[in-house]
């Protein structure tokens, strides 16, 4: 028995991967299939699931409505399409802002003297490991009408005898954007840093030797070589922004509703898990499409796990 296992490498590998595979099947594959099955069903009066096969949840998601003005059997209801569009554009904007903030900092850290580098890097880890909810809370405190920013401005205005009305910052799309950027910035810094750090210094010297000025060196050498980091960072930022609901829930209130909020409410408040499941699958497909086209060119490797 032992001797046969010793010579059967394939069986050894299968055996080693089995616990993980069982876990992934039980808690990932089966739940996803279940979500798919439910998304074709409909809800009963108690919020339970009536299994069936109908695309009405998907149609509803893409604007098909039977709840129309008099005389019309069906019409276009843009509510959910708008939510999807808003989530996508927020995710794109967040990712762009995060890249433009993370890149200079990652570059700064990567080019720092090795002794200072670890300190600079640790300074990125602290906000990263500080709990997600706590970080939203910080912005809630800052942005509230009676919050820190308004408090400081009001205090300054009083000193200067300028009339001041507290600004309405919380519960705006801007608040959600700032919150998202703050939440996900560290996830972009680390992968970009990792890919920048890998670049051999001799390459910069070679580029300079071949007559490239620092700007051209950056464009032709540094930027292309750091692309795997940017791609990994984008995956780490774009996907969660698409799916999160806390930031918009706390900083956006009822004003900024994203797919995440939509899904959460279907499961907890509105109690239509079938519609929530359909929305969840559409969300997954959207992110998979974006990830696929984004990683197809560059791929992503170990950078993704440094965070």
């Amino acid at each position: 028995m032992l001797k046969r296992l010793r010579e059967n490498k394939s069986a050894q590998g299968t055996l080693l991967v089995t616990p993980t595979l069982l876990w992934m099947i039980g808690l990932l594959i089966i739940p996803l299939l279940l979500t798919l099955v439910i998304s074709f069903g409909s809800r009963d009066a108690d919020g339970g699931v009536i299994y069936g096969f109908s695309f009405h949840n998907y149609l509803r998601l893409f604007g098909y409505s039977t709840n129309c003005d008099a005389g019309q059997a069906s019409c276009f209801e843009p509510l959910y399409v708008n939510i999807l569009g808003r989530s996508l554009s927020l995710a794109f904007n967040t990712t762009l802002i995060v890249i433009s903030m993370a890149y200079p900092l990652a570059y700064f850290i990567a080019r720092a003297h090795p002794k200072q580098r670890t300190t600079f890097l640790m300074l990125v880890l602290v906000p990263l490991w500080t709990n997600f909810v706590i970080r939203v809370y910080a912005w809630m405190m800052l942005l509230r009408e009676q919050g820190v920013i308004n408090g400081i401005i009001g205090w300054l205005a009083a000193r200067l005898n300028i009339p001041f009305e507290p600004l309405q910052m919380l519960y705006t799309p801007g608040a959600v954007l700032v919150g998202m950027v703050y939440e996900f910035l560290p996830f972009m810094i680390l992968p970009i840093f990792t890919s920048l750090e890998k670049i051999d210094n001799a390459l910069f010297e070679a580029a300079a030797d071949l007559g490239a000025n620092p700007f051209r060196t950056f464009l032709r050498v540094t930027l292309p070589l750091s692309m795997p980091g940017v791609v990994a960072g984008t995956i780490l930022v774009f996907i969660p922004v698409m799916g999160t609901f806390i930031v918009s829930d706390i900083l956006g209130g009822r004003q900024v509703i994203l797919v995440g909020n939509l899904i959460q409410r279907q499961f907890l408040d509105a109690r239509d898990p079938t519609f929530g499941s359909a929305a969840s699958l559409i969300l997954m497909i959207l992110t998979l499409i974006v990830t696929y086209f984004y990683t197809r060119k560059f791929g992503f490797g170990e950078e993704i796990v440094v965070a």
């Binding site: 992934m24 808690l27 990932l28 089966i30 739940p31 996803l32 279940l34 979500t35 439910i38 995956i235 996907i239 969660p240 698409m242 799916g243 999160t244 609901f245 995440g260 899904i263 959460q264 499961f267 898990p273 929530g276 499941s277 969840s280 699958l281 969300l283 997954m284 992110t287 998979l288 990830t291 993704i304």
Partner: peptide, 18 residues
């Protein structure tokens, strides 16, 4: 790879349903 590239909420409602 799947859990890395799908939003957490998808997995969350998946396990809730399961």
């Amino acid at each position: 790879y799947i859990p890395i590239v799908i939003p957490e909420i998808v997995m969350g409602i998946g396990v809730l349903t399961l």
